[in-house]
Simulated assay, not measured.
Amino acid sequence: MQALDILESGSYYHIYNRGINSCDLFIEEDNYAYFLNLYEKYIDPIADTYAWVLMPNHFHVLLRLKDVEEIDSTELKATHQYFSNLFNAYTKAFNKRNNRHGALFERPFKRKLIENDTYLNRVLLYIHNNPVHHDFCSHAIEYGWSSYLSCLSNRPTKLKRKEVIEWFNDEANFKYMHQHAMASKQMEEWLGLE
């Protein structure tokens, strides 16, 4: 079994996972929305989210785990337990709806500690351009199940979009960098996701 990074409060992480045997996690449109609702319920209390994308058979999230002082102490438990609760709740609903049983997500879920600003920006670009890399669209703006549009919107959101835009200096550079992100294979190698 591979060694996993311990989830440390106050740190940024790239969290990702896929369906067991690469099976689809999201079959119908409302599956995506349901997963996001569960994410809000289980993960928002312990983390700030900066980017996300939901693909048919996998997902990616860029987040910062809150410091212990920022979390309601009445609900405090091991960080991985919040993710386990998310995956279990979604799996139970998905299995019931699709008349299936057993595991849905690969275990353990993947996590990469982000230790510098360059890596942080590259992960964000990788997440938003994931639908482009998998040929679902030609630009991140065309894919509805990612945080790219939320970053550019004025609508209320829990996404830390102000900070995200500041990482790229301004909205114009944010858009420019997304249009000129490196090729998928090169990005995966650079991020160590092979």
Rank of each mutant, 00 (worst) to 15 (best):
L159Y: 04
I20Y: 03
E166P: 13
F94E: 05
E166Y: 12
W190Y: 13
L124F: 00
H60N: 11
W167R: 13
K77S: 01
Y50K: 01
G10C: 10
K92Q: 13
E29Q: 09
H133Q: 11
D67G: 04
N116Q: 05
P108A: 10
K41T: 12
D135A: 13
C137K: 05
R161N: 14
N37R: 13
N121E: 15
F94Y: 11
A89M: 14
H80L: 00
S84T: 08
K158I: 11
L152P: 02
F87M: 14
K112A: 05
T118I: 15
F136A: 03
I27G: 05
M55I: 12
L65P: 02
Q186K: 13
G19Q: 03
F168Y: 15
F109A: 05
N121L: 15
T79G: 00
D135F: 14
K175V: 11
A51V: 08
Y34H: 14
D135L: 12
Y50F: 15
A78H: 05
Y12K: 00
F83Y: 08
I71V: 15
T49I: 15
Q186H: 07
E106M: 08
Y82I: 05
M1A: 08
K185A: 10
S147M: 03
H139V: 04
I20H: 01
L7G: 03
F174D: 01
P131I: 05
S184W: 06
H14C: 09
F83K: 02
R100S: 13
I71F: 02
P45G: 02
T74F: 04
K185E: 13
E75I: 07
N95E: 10
H58R: 14
F87N: 00
K112Y: 02
Y42A: 05
E171T: 15
